[in-house]
Design a protein around this nucleic acid. Structure first.
Length: 526
RNA sequence: GGCCCCUUCGUCUAGUCAGGUCCAGGACAUCGGAUUUUCAGUCCGAGAACAGGGGUUCGAAUCCCCUAGGGGUCACCA
């Protein structure tokens, strides 16, 4: 008889920094997916959100809010954590100082950690010397050589000290990583990590280990840059009397077109990244219209960018899910539900994956097309409202229908905002090329007078308009393109947009005819 | 520099654990064609990769060894 499949508990522990990094979101997604997969297709799974706020953020709401918003936007809920609580709280590290202090005392009392009185400078000098000599640096442990009386005197004098974990030398620590298989380290090469500062506050490696054990985390899924922290955490967990969790070190996300970790530090550089450039430029066009500043917090490195510019959460989920993971040799489209069903750690790849804005955009096309009409209307409507453009919902619906697949981002609706304006402005270049061109005004005049003017309101439909235009062009032995272009520019002012017959329909018979007259008068003046 | 990780088309990846069906499959991007002419979309097509070298084997992208390259990490940050 095999043991029952264990239930799974995963966690994600963001620092409240005021914005959610897209790479961090990918790590969070994998944790969430692993837990949900086991809940629905295994013995159970729980996803925990824990807040790493040891830095004591000045304003927690401001710093944590956007992060929780990103989770909510993508539809990733958490079973335990902020707002929802849970049996393993508190879920803010700033509220767990007692727990850390107790664990620290336990290690100290057992002789598994020690007070180190060496100054920062002295330790740095040791490290430099080792570096220079090309030998591995390990802690010199001078404080362990101290006699009891010496130590007592130092403490009585109030000499500052840090607490270091005493790494057992001469051992091999190994993990069976879910994505990297077996990884081993020689503990003789590991420095004794500081686990508590002079002020008594504990450090990341220690807090995480204590919390993961206290919260019964079974699977630690994190980016591979944490791989080198792992031996210390394994040793620490054992010293504390716990069995270490299973680890899965997933590849980190690289900046588009590079092999370097996508980092919020480099946002400035990314503006010039040829692959990222388009995304920045689109933001430059859109954000000013909706009263948003293009800041680091809404750059393409952050989840907020995608929401702000009108991506579908499903598109972002799909792209993130495929970053370092695949099901097989052909499936590309995954809903969140599909991912919950199909996601397993053993299909995570080992090598870093670059975020590809083009591919993300392609997923967006797909998921925008899957979006019901009503939802598109409300999404686009929200953009129009932010841009302070008055609109009629029915008309917006018709416009969205006419745009069809052309509507990729919800913000694209702003590109055709001229449909909501009473007055149009001609794109001067397009006007010259399409309307004020030899032979065109006469042709357009004739078509309008002979075919359009006499059309009844009820016959002013895309199908009828197309039939008229086609047959007129045929009779005149001219390319339909001439009228198509001329009419579009004359009635909307723009060179691009929905199909021209839809444009005429949207603008309406009366207004279209008036605009053709105005355009022709304009062309005559030119 | 020490330790650790990684290496298939430009990119994301399938195939590697169980060597032959892989002169390497899919997707995005690119280019070309069609839809007899906006833009877009759709359809069709093209080019494009096993880092290098040695082994093992009848046979290697797949196993072994070496080399090279890339990356991560070496804080009283997380």
């Amino acid at each position: 008889m095999s043991a029952p499949a264990p239930t799974v508990r995963t966690r994600f522990a963001p620092s409240p920094t005021g914005s959610m990094h897209i790479g961090g979101m990918r790590t969070a997604l994998f944790n969430w997916l692993h837990a949900r997969h086991h809940r629905e297709h295994g013995a159970g799974g729980t996803f925990v959100l824990r807040v790493d706020d040891t830095d004591r953020a000045r304003n927690l709401d401001e710093a944590l809010g956007p992060i929780l918003d990103a989770f909510r936007w993508l539809g990733l809920d958490w079973d335990e954590g902020p707002e929802v609580g849970g049996p393993h709280g508190p879920y803010f590290q700033s509220e767990r100082t007692e727990i850390y202090a107790t664990a620290l005392d336990k290690l100290l009392a057992a002789g598994l950690a020690y007070k180190d009185f060496d100054s920062r400078e002295r330790v740095a000098a040791d490290r430099d010397a080792a570096q220079k000599a090309g030998t591995p640096y390990v802690t010199v442990r001078r404080s362990l050589e101290l006699s009891d009386t010496e130590r007592e005197r130092l403490e009585a004098d109030g000499t500052p000290f840090v607490v270091r974990f005493l790494v057992p030398r001469g051992e091999t620590v190994a993990i069976d990583d879910a994505v990297r298989d077996r990884v081993e380290w020689d503990t003789s090469l590991l420095p004794d990590p500081v686990i508590a500062r002079q002020d008594g506050s504990v450090l990341y490696n220690f807090a995480t280990t204590v919390d993961d054990a206290a919260m019964a985390i079974t699977d630690v899924i994190r980016a591979e840059e944490h791989l080198s922290n792992t031996p210390v955490q394994v040793l620490l967990a054992r010293a504390l009397g716990h069995e270490p969790p299973r680890y899965a070190h997933i590849p980190f996300v690289t900046a588009p077109g590079t092999t370097k970790k996508l980092s919020k530090r480099d946002i400035g550089k990314y503006r010039n990244n040829p692959v990222f450039k388009k995304m920045f430029e689109r933001a430059d066009e859109i954000f000013p219209q909706i009263g948003l500043d293009v800041t680091d917090a809404v750059s393409p490195v952050m989840v907020a960018y995608y929401e702000s510019i009108g991506y579908r959460p499903a598109a972002v989920i799909n792209a993130l899910g495929r970053l370092g993971w695949s099901l097989d040799d052909k499936t590309e489209i995954f809903s969140l539900g599909d991912l919950v069903r199909d996601f397993t750690l053993d299909r995570v790849v080992k090598n870093p994956a670059g975020l590809d804005p083009d591919k993300l955009f392609n997923f967006q096309s797909h998921w925008m097309n899957e979006t019901p009409r009503d939802e598109k209307v409300s999404l686009c409507g929200a953009f129009l409202e932010k841009a302070k453009i008055a609109f009629d919902a029915d008309f917006l619906g018709r416009l969205i229908d006419a745009m069809g697949d052309r509507l990729k981002l919800a913000a694209d609706i702003l590109d055709v905002a001229y449909f909501f304006a009473d007055e149009i402005e001609y794109d001067p270049k397009a006007f010259k090329k399409r309307v004020a061109k030899a032979g065109v005004p006469e042709h357009l005049r004739a078509f309008t007078d002979e075919r359009l003017a006499s059309l009844a309101d009820a016959d002013w439909t895309p199908a009828r308009l197309e039939a008229e235009l086609t047959s007129f062009s045929e009779a005149a032995e001219k390319s339909p393109g001439l009228l198509i272009h001329a009419l579009r520019v004359a009635t909307t002012g723009a060179a691009v947009g929905p199909g021209v017959y839809d444009c005429l329909d949207l603008v309406g018979r009366e207004k279209s005819l008036a605009r053709v007259d105005a355009a022709l008068a304009n062309a005559a003046d030119a």
